[in-house]
């Protein structure tokens, strides 16, 4: 049996009309922006399943754009996200597609920036406003955005897991979940923890290592 807290039942505080199609979409956008950063001038959204079929009527499109602008699912500015994005000079497009994924509410978000490699994230809205990020640039991951999360992509070699574990323990951080996967010769590590992580932890881990991508996401707790 899954454990629920009272604010899982009375909540989230959100912008309607649908926790999965609107709140979950905003969270997918926001979590993606936290993973990638805010340095982009164009974003493409590939909508799959129910997202593709009903996105206009549910405001999924506005919620996704609000998310990549950094808005929370409860932000009352969410429905003005198109205008805000245009003011910031950010171009966005929506495509209805078949991503071949099982979950009906899935989106592929591709960030573009001149002179940088395209960066993409695939995630699903799995109900009640909860999300699961499943793919970052081809690396299979499982990331919920509920807990503080460390993401590392690095050339695969021995000893990195042990080093990360040691540094986290030294910083008094308890690991809740850890997943490591490999794509080509690179490994991607997702570590969800019980404690807030300072960005300096990333510096400690990066010292003397070749890190292709590294980030720490600390979700806002209400």
């Amino acid at each position: 049996m899954k454990e629920y807290g009272i604010f899982d039942i009375l909540g989230p505080i959100m912008i309607g009309p649908s926790s999965s199609h609107t709140a979950g979409a905003a969270k997918l956008g926001k979590t993606s922006e936290e993973i990638y950063g805010d340095d982009f001038d164009k974003v493409d959204f590939y909508l799959h399943g129910s997202f593709a079929k009903t996105y206009k009527g549910h405001g999924t499109d506005k919620a996704l754009v609000a998310g990549i602008l950094g808005m929370e699912p409860s932000s009352e500015k969410l429905k003005d996200s198109f205008i805000i994005a245009k003011e910031k000079g950010i171009e966005f497009n929506f495509y209805e597609t078949d991503l071949g994924y099982e979950h009906p509410n899935t989106v592929k978000i591709v960030f573009h920036k001149d002179n940088k490699r395209d960066f993409y994230i695939i995630g699903s809205s799995i109900g009640g406003g909860s999300i699961l990020i499943t793919d970052i640039n081809g690396n299979k991951v499982e990331l919920t955005g509920e807990s503080p999360t460390l993401i590392l992509e690095y050339p695969d070699k021995k000893g990195v897991i042990s080093k990360v574990g040691t540094i986290l323990a030294y910083n008094n951080i308890n690991i809740a979940n850890m997943k490591v996967s490999r794509f080509d010769k690179n490994a991607t590590m997702i570590v969800e923890t019980d404690n807030f992580m300072d960005k300096k932890i990333l510096d400690e881990i990066s010292a003397g290592e070749e890190i292709i991508y590294g980030n720490i996401i600390n979700p806002v707790r209400r």
Binding site: G11, I15, G16, P17, S19, G129
Partner: peptide
Amino acid sequence: EVNASMGQIVAAPTAGASGIL
């Protein structure tokens, strides 16, 4: 109606049933 207009509500327990409580 606030929910259907992209206004702010509390899911209770869901957005679709948020008017009742």
